[in-house]
Structures are given as structure tokens and as C-alpha cells.
Nucleic acid binder design. Structure first.
Lengths: 218, 218
DNA sequence: ATGTGTGAAGAGCTTCACAGCC
DNA sequence: GGCTGTGAAGCTCTTCACACAT
């Protein structure tokens, strides 16, 4: 049994469980069943149990899972211990909101560097970070040991910035620009696109209503 | 061949293609191959062709797809024509950034109503919308014919608000609070959780590096 | 020569259903 | 009684590989 035998969707769900468990801890819940955890994460109970079974026996039959122990196990599996520093490129509306979003630190992330090419923004302090010019950005990011950049620049400049960061050997980009970010191997990228998520949601919601109506009628 | 025979992942990807095609249009590209579109969307070329094949023959052998025609076809399949109004609940850092994010309108969405329970925020105009009190919120949302709410309230209050919106018969919620949003049937919900996305990205990026090293060594 | 369209094969994931344990 | 852990079955999705069109 190696990492290759574990469904990649199982890995992705571990992060969802992780998040749900931190919420349960905050609520003071000590024990959780696969059924309850499944409800919160919107998957089936069988999926929850199967997912954990790839890594060991974390529960107690007849009882459920101890929230704290389960969280520790997932943290270990995902190697998600230490606070992680990230960099932000682009200090517009989105970038500014992220800098002021203090919750990141609770969740193990800190925006340690912020860059913008607009001279009027350079030098300003937002949250606890001072905006720097994009010149020499790659070097500064690397020398601080940062692996992940949040890209919040206008759509038109995103591909260029992403490609130059990729050349610098950066590991990962979380982008708010969904366009044309074909990337070389060796760099992972995820696009956050709220409009697209809303469009998907509405499609599925409307489909569900339509199916429900059909069931009532015929 | 009914809607039920089409992989749900195909449907989800149509939205990704849609977005990529709008970017290609803006760049002035007239023709695109499955290979190129696949690169942009980070899937395989076979997946792209297979996805379209469920709905018809949109391309020209030896040439590729006409960007505009393909976009029109996808728009029709997804029934994604008219501008859509949505409501925002919670005008904190995130909510304010969304209200100022003018790009939504380019992408077919408009935040038509905004609510907050903080009296100091009620009455203020942000972007083109005036913040209202949350009292009577459900009624106002329904009477405007809105199906989707963006939920940007503190984690602790999110479950309560979500449940009350569900009772009002709302169709869908896009939430920035990932916690304990077990929902009744009939309402669709998607959680946007940037910390979790970053954690996933870093995991996959580091795994990839480790695998690359192993290949070099052995 | 180039790139789409597609049945068939293959891979991967989820559900089932029940044994095992508290 | 209640809930976990898990092989086997079943299903869904992706990849393959090549016919077909320009």
C-alpha cells in the first residue's frame, strides 16, 4: 500500500474533513460519527469510513471517532503542521481584502510579502505587510523560502506574471485570474473563479428543481 | 441519450471551457484545437473532445473549433444567457471586496441586494448597492426573484443564516464559511475556502517535487 | 498532414452489505 | 443496539486508438 494506491479524491477530501473537524473542536464536540461528518462535508458515510481506512483504524466501533485524535491523524497524514508563509502579487480590491483577512493566520497561513507594480501602492502598509515593487519579486520570494503565491492581478497581466514565477522555480500559484494559465510541468496552479462557481451552483440548483417537479407531475 | 447519461464532471468542465473561451475571444483568437483548450483548462485533449461529443459535433476535422460557435453552443447547453441577480449577506472585508468587484457584471452576475445586521453598516452605499438590515431579508430576496445568495458572514453565524435562507426556499448558497453547513435537500451549497485550497495546492506541489526527486535518484 | 469524433477497453472510485467490535 | 472497517461488486469516467473529414 503506497501513496499511489490511494485515490487522489480521498486525499482532497481529507482537507475537507480537516476543516470540518477544526470547526467541531471549536464547538466543543468530542466525538463524531461517519454519518455526521458526512453530512457536514456533503459526502456519503461509506466514503468517510473508506477514506480513513486507507490510513488505519481511527474510530471505535459502536462509538465513532474522537474528534481530536482524528484531527491529529489527518494533520500527520497531510503533513500540515507548521504555519506557512505565502506571498501576494497584486494589491487591488481582492488583494487588499486578503491582506485584511486575519483569519488566514488562524488557519495556518500568513501573507508575508505583498507586491504591486503601481508606484502609488508601493510603500503602503496594509494589515501587517508593506507593499513592495514587483521588481526583483521572484528573488525575494525564493530567498524567504516561500512556495506559494496568491495571484490577484488583472486578468490581462496574469499569464505573464505566472510564467515568470514558474521560471523562478515556484511550486504553486493560487490565481484569481482564470485565463490562459497554461503552465509548464513542475508548477501547480488552482484558479478561484467565483462567477464560475455561481454559474455551476445555479445550473445544479435549477436542474434539481426541474427534476423534483418532474417527479411530482409524473 | 438524456441528461442523466452525461457525466456530471463533463457538465462541470463545460463551465471551465466556457470561461476559457471568453478569454480566447477577448484575445481575438478565432480557432482553437482540443489540444490547446485542454492545456488552458488543464485536462487531456481526449477529455475535451469526448465532453463535446455528448452534445453534438462542434468542430471541423483537421481544423479545430471555431471559438465563437463553440462558446454559443456551450452557452445554449448550460442555459447561461441572461444577466443574473444575486444577493450578498455579510458586508465585512470579503463582502465589501465583492461589492467593489466590478468584474462580476462583465461575467453575467450582479449583486442586487446587500445585507448586514450591524446598524453602523446599514444605509451605507458600497459600489452601486445600499446595505440593508437583515430583518425581512428572506422576503426581499424572494420577491426580487433571486435564487442565489453569497454568504460572507462570520463562521459562527453562518449555519444559522444558511438554515433560515434554506427555509425561505432559496435555491443556492455560495458560502465563505466552511463550517457545519449541513443543509436540507433542495438547496445547493458550495463553500469557498482559500486556506483549504492553499493547503491542497501545497500538498500536491510538494508531493510532485518529492516524486521528481525519487525519479532522479533511483 | 492535421485534428475531430467515438466505440471499446481499461482504470479508478463508490456503494454495498456484512463481519467485527464496543 | 450502534457504528466502524473492508473485500467484492458495481458503476462511472477516462484513455486508447483509429476511422473519418478537410
Amino acid at each position: 500500500m503506497t501513496i499511489k494506491d490511494i485515490p487522489s479524491q480521498t486525499i482532497d477530501r481529507l482537507f475537507t474533513y480537516f476543516r470540518a473537524l477544526t470547526c467541531l473542536i471549536r464547538e466543543g464536540t468530542e466525538t463524531v460519527s461517519s454519518k455526521r461528518l458526512a453530512e457536514i462535508c456533503r459526502v456519503s458515510a461509506a466514503v468517510v469510513r473508506k477514506d480513513f481506512s486507507y490510513f488505519g483504524e481511527f474510530g471505535t466501533r459502536g462509538v465513532g471517532y474522537n474528534v481530536k485524535d482524528l484531527l491529529d491523524n489527518i494533520r500527520r497524514i497531510l503533513d500540515f503542521d507548521s504555519p506557512t508563509e505565502v506571498a501576494l502579487v497584486g494589491v487591488g480590491n481582492v488583494g487588499r481584502a486578503l491582506l485584511q483577512h486575519s483569519q488566514f493566520e488562524l488557519e495556518g497561513f500568513k501573507i508575508a510579502l505583498a507586491f504591486d507594480k503601481d508606484p502609488r501602492k508601493v510603500g503602503h502598509k496594509i494589515g501587517s505587510v508593506t507593499v513592495q515593487d514587483t521588481k526583483g519579486m521572484g528573488k525575494k520570494i525564493r530567498s524567504r523560502g516561500i512556495d506559494l503565491v496568491i495571484l490577484a492581478v488583472p486578468d490581462s497581466t496574469a499569464p505573464g506574471v505566472a510564467k515568470s514565477l514558474a521560471k523562478e522555480g515556484l511550486g504553486a500559484i493560487l490565481s484569481f485570474s482564470p485565463c490562459d494559465l497554461a503552465m509548464p510541468d513542475g508548477i501547480k496552479i488552482t484558479c478561484v473563479d467565483l462567477s464560475m462557481e455561481m454559474a455551476r451552483l445555479l445550473y445544479h440548483s435549477r436542474l434539481q428543481s426541474r427534476l423534483a417537479e418532474m417527479r411530482l407531475e409524473g
